[in-house]
Design a binder for these strands. Structure first.
Lengths: 351, 351
DNA sequence: GACCGCTCTGTGAACGCTAACAATGATGCA
DNA sequence: TGCATCATTGTTAGCGTTCACAGAGCGGTC
């Protein structure tokens, strides 16, 4: 009861020659039919089609790639596909690639070292990808990437603007300004910040936008706390902040904590838990804004004001940047696409 | 300032023949060095290695695949890589595949129709995958899959047990029993259930486990509510349940709502929001348990009791199942791997 | 010294496809 | 009718590997 039919033996996959013989034409004509070449008589084409279906023939991609020198495969190096951002980007990216006729192969990274990145890229090169998208918004990784002289085009996602690599990114600075400005407009004297890890480019840009907004408004800039994107680290930062609220009137060394801009929604969740445990009401005593707009954010207690990033658009854009490069290998300037984020106001900042 | 060096022109990638010429040996010897064949003199091997490095030579995977008839590529069809489960599975799976020397190419599905599934598989076949993992725990999809007679092995993830396809799954029934049993043990008269969409196999299995536990305990089985995995649908179900609590003593047609087992954490979040808005305390008036243990669950308000699934293990197991099949094509029985879930008790069920 | 067996290396032929060119027949037009 | 043109098809030669086999050289055994 094996899957192969009858007793024909192991029966190898049919080849173009088999189809040709059955249809009574040359293999080249079969090839022409498959690649939609115009100069094939309709009756011949039909005959070939029938033979193809009858045999269940499929073109051998390796043979094809060998002679055309095109594998039609794109590689992706992703940091952690469990995070909402990278996962969504990957989703949009794969769809875009498929619709342009490419296959995408992904490699995930456990560590963000130059070595791990090189290994990942090596692995992809071994399989002959025509280009890669790197979704590792980590300073060290992007710098290592810039050093590498690769024989195919590379596009980064959130790779920053300082290095000469093509890339797509959301305007993190603007996002941070939207959130911080929103809190200031609500009447808060200043806005505290729980940042992401300092070696992440996104984290850094969000700090910049937050700081600039405060400085432009001429208000005091409190020292930012630093987390690692996880709810737990947000929880720790929240405890620290709650402590300051409690100290309150007593200690006048830093401004009151009445508003916090947290660098991502997961950490904001942790911060809110800490506040809850400390008996602080949100937004009554402290207003909180996050970043990302993960699907859960709307249902947090209270629903979280946050900055939405269109990750699907990011994925799509990265593919179009990459394929554009593949089509015209001449261009070498580092093209950049920037996508605008949007502020989503919910009840964690307005009562 | 193009990426190619000097004025050597477009310069094609070096081939085995180039390496052979430089090292003063035949291409076959180069091949032997690359595949670690024992019968090569050490000095020769070193010479070849040096030539390889000097030229920056890489084996052409297409040519290799053509002659060996092995693409060393595995395909994955995933439903929605934005969900925590599939994403984590993919993560573990990719890592396992890579360590076994395979590349993985993923295709994502927007719709769960037989047609979409077939297209996805077609796409993968076109690129010559040696086998595929299907992460689409949807009844229609799995049934369609069972109909397909594919020329390569297929492994499902959460594909149910009714069909003769190899697969890996978490024991959903057990998970539901753990959660429901936990709530009964805490003294609740019965446990309500917010289920996932009925055409999802996981949802169905969780309903089964929940119902069986109640029946075995000899308590009344309330009618299950149905959501679609999203927090919003959980919110709606929560409103419905909150209404019943309010009706309370008045209406005796169904048992009191004091405990709810929700089929995933995201919906549980929605349920909790609805309860909060209705002024119901968790776990004071109603206890809630979820399923999945997403990273956020621990920081919900209150932290959520839930069932943890080891998705990384699922991914790993699916690859080992698949590669085992590739290595011994004879076996055709539908092997199944079942992974045990674990109950994580937090304060949403105990005060 | 003839023979065997072993190690190391090279030669030639696939693998299944596309590209380039050649060949055929039909058609158009002077 | 003759010649150029075009549509349609076939033939041949690779693409860069690996596999199967052959061959050279060497040491040991009887």
């Amino acid at each position: 009861m094996s899957q192969t039919a009858e007793s024909t033996g192991p029966r190898r996959a049919p080849t173009m020659a088999d189809v040709a013989k059955l249809a009574g034409v040359s293999h080249q004509t079969v090839s022409r039919v498959l690649s939609d070449h115009p100069n094939v008589r309709d009756t011949t084409r039909a005959e070939v089609q029938r033979a193809i279906e009858q045999l269940g023939y499929r073109r051998n991609s390796s043979a094809r790639a060998l002679v055309t020198r095109r594998t039609l495969t794109l590689g992706v190096v992703a940091c952690n596909p469990t995070l909402f951002g990278p996962a969504s980007t990957l989703f949009g990216l794969e769809e875009a690639a498929r619709s342009e006729g490419y296959m995408v192969s992904a490699v995930t990274l456990r560590q963000y070292t130059a070595k791990a990145l090189e290994e990942a890229i090596d692995h992809l090169s071994d399989w002959g990808v025509e280009g890669i998208v790197v979704i590792v918004p980590h300073r060290a990784a992007v710098e290592a990437l810039a050093e590498l002289r690769l024989p195919f085009p590379v596009v980064t996602v959130e790779g920053g603007h300082s290095l000469p690599i093509a890339g797509v990114s959301v305007d993190q600075d603007l996002g941070a300004r939207l959130a911080t400005g929103h809190l200031l407009a609500a009447g808060h004297r200043t806005v505290w910040h729980v940042a992401g890890p300092s070696d992440w480019l996104e984290a850094e840009a969000r700090v910049r936008g937050w700081r600039a907004t405060l400085e432009e408004a001429g208000v005091e800039v409190p020292p930012p706390l630093v987390g690692d994107w996880t709810p737990l680290s947000g929880y720790r930062a929240g405890q620290e902040l709650a402590g300051r609220v409690a100290a309150g009137q007593a200690r006048r060394s830093s401004p009151d904590v009445t508003a916090v801009f947290v660098a991502n929604d997961q950490m904001a969740l942790g911060v809110m838990r800490a506040f809850r445990e400390a008996g602080l009401s949100v937004p009554g005593q402290v207003a909180i804004a996050g970043f990302d707009d993960i699907p859960e954010a709307e249902f947090f207690a209270p629903p979280l004001t946050t900055v939405r990033q269109d990750f699907a658009a990011v994925g799509k854009a990265s593919i179009s940047l990459l394929t554009r490069r593949l089509d015209s290998p001449g261009r070498s300037e580092a093209e950049r696409v920037v996508i605008e984020p949007r502020l989503i106001v919910r009840s964690s900042t307005v009562s």
